[in-house]
Nucleic acid binder design. Structure first.
Lengths: 345, 345
DNA sequence: CGAAGTCATGTGCACGGTCACAAATTGGCC
DNA sequence: GGCCAATTTGTGACCGTGCACATGACTTCG
């Protein structure tokens, strides 16, 4: 740890300069300074220059708390996030922060990772006590939405995933389309015995991907088996893989994310089989590592960053009361790599 | 997107209830309400109960901006972060947020990911304009520290990595020790021709790991070659691997993180060689996927979450002016898996 | 029983901005 | 030169909370 250069050596704890200090030195009223700060229209250039000079000299910074108090607006948006350490959410959060900052907003994040009971309410409470103007929900689990409804949040909120219902304002990567792409790819290769390793049932996107899988299978009249419900981790994929290999009545598996796909491949190889010779695998997300798995993983790419950006745009429009133009769903993209091939027989 | 239940249907835009509204309904002064909120000592139980009842009834929430303004403290800490989408930083950030929240603090993050020039100053500015009380630097690059010094930040800050110099207050995972563990493991297995794939030179932790590697090699009197400087990505590891295989005068590689190790293994396998038969690989970080790489990766585990927690503890102590007890460096742990073995000959 | 001390509560102002409105200055035009 | 309008600047109140100090009620004790 390196301590900051603590300048407050002098006896009195000097408060930061205020708008009035600037006003005094510039020989104007505090209101004029305020106008310069908010670059109001009718300010004489010479006055403006003088004020700006003093601001520079005093190293003046507007006090956000005071501004928020008097304007009644915090200029802060909240992010409600689960598993924020994972690639997808983390990328989106970063994008959200950048986009918000560009729009002059601040971001405050509350995590849901920990002990469940009351956790959602507590997190929302944390955000609300920041008087956020809007919330981005990045933990699209059913219970979160229920909790949000129950708490009757009185600020607008958007989510990175469709809540399932058709919504005129839906902002989302089209998970169903993505899952269908993956499934179609396997069917087109000639696979007929395809398993689906799904995400946790209460995750909206997991459900959507499962739906997409089932839809495509149905449309192509390929008989389906019940999906296995996982927890997104490579660990689970590995164990699920070991279980599945006892049966071995499949030639391909579509995994609902890349991590579980990795675990699956681990289990398969450990059993002496080979991907894609014996089993084809498709993942979902296209995490940066996926291209270097062995074999490199065929997967469905989502643009998390773009998602985050659009999300902020939509939320801010909502806050402003503007009717947001619905840019429609972002289309995911199938990335074909080495983990899929025609079935062996 | 699902819009929140917008309650503000009524004509007038009702302001949230204030401490005085509560006071009026409870038949006390606003100051009494304030005392209840800050659970001040001398308040009659009956009064307290009455006030609390009104608070509940009115759904009253303290206004953070007003509180910050009047107390002159924002109760917010800032996080300055690069590559916040990666596993290590992301985990630490999550832990920081949780710890801060438990301590009644809010967290604000500024990313450095984007276009470099002025980016650091801008990010710091963003945080300072939030009047954060302290900053956690999670982007331990040399230039960031230089920028921090130049900007003469007047709030305490801590970093997740030692700045290299021995510092009485250093808070860090001992990167050097970790790197030595990894290197020792390879030497103990019998390897003598060991390469090191380092992280970006300007990253303090990358430099520390490189140092640890060189120290251990020196201590064991194993001749060394110049480390290769990478950029943390699997992509780079892959390309570096391909280059290295033109020479093939090594039996083991110590990679400065797991992603680059993954890329290395990809390149090695693609060249028809096998890990660990032909080349042993050690990584660093122990990302959750590492256990399911092929082969499962031998690596050095860091407890990012613990790091984040301690970091907040230290920073808050610093803010409070308390002398922080230095808990010393966190020791990393060598996790031996399948990617290392005795050299073939 | 009165003085001194503790406890419980109230009063008024400060924090650093913004807002609504008023006042001063400027310029154009007859 | 005087009048009106537009431009530029100033005045005072207010946002919601905490702090310092004042006040009144109730104890304690010699």
């Amino acid at each position: 740890m390196t301590s900051g250069v603590t300048v407050s050596d002098d006896s009195t704890k000097e408060r930061a300069p205020s708008i009035r200090d600037v006003a005094r030195l510039a020989g104007v009223s505090h209101q004029t300074v305020s106008r310069v700060l908010n670059n109001h229209a009718s300010i004489r250039d010479s006055t403006k220059a003088r004020v700006l000079a003093v601001i520079e000299e005093l190293q003046y910074r507007p006090n956000r708390a005071a501004r928020a108090l008097s304007r009644g607006r915090s200029r802060t948006i909240g992010v409600l996030s689960a598993s924020s350490a994972e690639y997808g959410p983390a990328s989106s959060i970063a994008a959200i922060q950048d986009a918000a900052r560009d729009a002059g907003y601040f971001v405050n994040t509350a995590n849901l990772n920990r002990g469940e009971p009351g956790s959602i309410a507590a997190a929302v409470d944390h955000l609300m006590s920041q008087s956020v103007e809007g919330i981005v929900v990045i933990a699209p689990q059913v219970q979160v939405f229920n909790a949000l409804k129950l708490l009757s949040i009185d600020v607008p909120f958007v989510t990175l995933q469709s809540s399932g219902n058709v919504d005129a304002n839906a902002l989302t990567v089209d998970q169903i389309a993505g899952a269908r792409l993956a499934t179609r790819h396997l069917i087109d290769l000639g696979h007929r015995d395809i398993y689906h390793l799904a995400g946790p049932q209460d995750w909206i996107e997991a459900e959507a991907r499962m739906h997409g899988f089932l839809e495509e299978m149905g449309a192509r009249e390929v008989p389906t088996t019940a999906p296995i419900l996982g927890d997104w981790t490579a660990q689970f994929g590995y164990h699920a893989g070991r279980e599945l290999l006892h049966v071995r009545d499949f030639t391909a598996i579509f995994s609902s994310n890349d991590q579980m796909a990795l675990g699956l491949m681990h289990a398969i190889r450990e059993a002496g089989l080979e991907v894609p010779r014996d089993v084809s695998i498709v993942g979902f997300d296209d995490i940066p590592e996926a291209a270097h798995f062995w074999p490199p993983l065929t997967t469905v790419r989502q643009d998390f960053a773009e998602l985050g950006r659009r999300c902020v745009a939509l939320l801010l429009a909502n806050i402003a009361g503007t009717t947001a133009e619905n840019q429609g769903a972002i289309m995911p993209e199938l990335i074909v790599r080495g983990s899929t091939a025609r079935p062996a027989f």
